[in-house]
Write a protein that binds this DNA or RNA. Sequence first.
DNA 1: TTGTAGGCGTTATCAC
DNA 2: GTGATAACGCCTACAA
Lengths: 325, 325
Amino acid sequence: MTSVDVARRAGVSQSTVSLVLSGKSRGRISAPTEEAVRRAAEELGYRPNVAARALRTGLARTVGLVVPDVTHPFFGLTMRGAQEAAFAAGYAVALVNVPGDADWQLAPLEALRAGPVDGFLYFSVEPPRGGPGGEHIVVIEASPDGIPWVRLDTEGGTDAALGHLLALGHRRIGHLGSSLSFPTFDIRTERWRAALESAGEEPSADLSARAIFDFDDAARAALELLGGPRPPTAIFCDDDILAGGVYLAARERGLRIPEDVSVVGFDDLDFAHVLSPPLTTVLADAERLGAMAFETLAAGMAGEAPPGRVLPVELVVRESTAPPR
Amino acid sequence: MTSVDVARRAGVSQSTVSLVLSGKSRGRISAPTEEAVRRAAEELGYRPNVAARALRTGLARTVGLVVPDVTHPFFGLTMRGAQEAAFAAGYAVALVNVPGDADWQLAPLEALRAGPVDGFLYFSVEPPRGGPGGEHIVVIEASPDGIPWVRLDTEGGTDAALGHLLALGHRRIGHLGSSLSFPTFDIRTERWRAALESAGEEPSADLSARAIFDFDDAARAALELLGGPRPPTAIFCDDDILAGGVYLAARERGLRIPEDVSVVGFDDLDFAHVLSPPLTTVLADAERLGAMAFETLAAGMAGEAPPGRVLPVELVVRESTAPPR
DNA sequence: TTGTAGGCGTTATCAC
DNA sequence: GTGATAACGCCTACAA
């Protein structure tokens, strides 16, 4: 089932088929001929061979999606946004889950370079430097020099969360951060420090802990925070999952939220409002972020030099925050 | 950067390069020649062009992953398992998120057929019938005739959950089911009916409700269940997210879990033990399921006719279940 | 043991 | 307006 079969059936040459089916027929092919070709293709159920097209054009119409953890709901949403935008634009999406830390940088590039992929969407992490260059890349949730990016207004979200806590009267505000040193998390740490200092509070070591995105590990870290001689009256978490860990830790120590300790998360994952009490958190439109990322990549592949774009976020105040006792 | 460049640099012919680099050199190419070719390829950073290879061999070394909802953590895990197994076997994975209901059946096939994909992994849903056939398919969490599949021991898990509730003394056991009529959910419904009947209880309409995988919609459905004149003393949920909805509904009606109503979930998603109280649920190894699916597909593509495989599950009793009052 | 040559299905540049 | 024809980069008989 090739374009030759279609040509034979329509009684034209193969190149006429190609012209018609790739929409380059304007003013070159007569209407009846075009119609005949289309009908023949339809009847035969003809689909152009992607490999042949890619070989000829050098374009795969596929983008690689590099994510650190397919399992995290935030990434799930972002992936969906990116995937649907890509699909709508006629692009396929190749998924690569990158195992955390190691020299992951090589794997996806090695695997997907040289053919199957026209460009990359890197989630949360900086793309490997010093590749042969020339490939199209967009970074999500980071903003390295010289590479187009798309990210949340993390600064704004963090400031809103901390401002809320400060306005409630909290001063000893703890920070439960991600143990991943991605730029987006570095920003949260830095703004937390700044907020505390501006309120005359020292961002001391016993106010800060780190964990991976896992409820149990987050609980362990939260226990550190809550177990000191002068525990924080509120905890700002880099992520809702980490906030979930604080709930676990509070339960274990018999602490009530928000009476004994206020908690703020980030992302507004679905489960955030199922927790008891519902979590105050920063809402981020992950799906939109993913779609924006693809759009930016598409612009880049079309030869434009797209600027970085930032997506606003919004503090959602629920019931996990209250004035300190 | 093609194999011709490598050949020129190594001072051999292009076909020698091809032979060496695709491992077909055994007993045909001399060691020094082989060494020279490898070094030249290395120095040039040569990567074979995937499109050309796919065109020539007819094999894309890519599998399509069709998921109904990338966002659901269970799928996230399954995807990761499948993706890593595929990657390890030298396969790329093309992701397709299928928007729930519509005539989604066409989209992925249309898009990925004829070239870019050697086989499909269908998550939870039956693959479209009546395609031209001939493609390699494995279905996850369904077991249609004549197509290889991989699934959980849903029967065992459901029976264990219901047995636990029955042993606790519950008789009026409600069922909060998925509104998707996938086989895996049909099984749960059917076993729930059977369990109730065997205990002399009528599986009446007011004991059954359905919702999509969304906490709020699940809460709405749970409210239906809990709001009747003779509400159930326990609720078996098709999924942990639905169970989360019961928590929401219970909170809204001032009902305590497990004192006023027991709850059992399915999947053991991460958040299940963060809920208050921790959720009793059926643990399923989603990641392993995904890996098994790819292995089955690989076997199929290698010409074997793999049997269906079922993965055992296990009831995890936590604190959301207790005897009825 | 190595090289030559043909073709996979497209697209695109030419003549006609 | 339409049809030959030449690549694209690779694999693999087959010839040397």
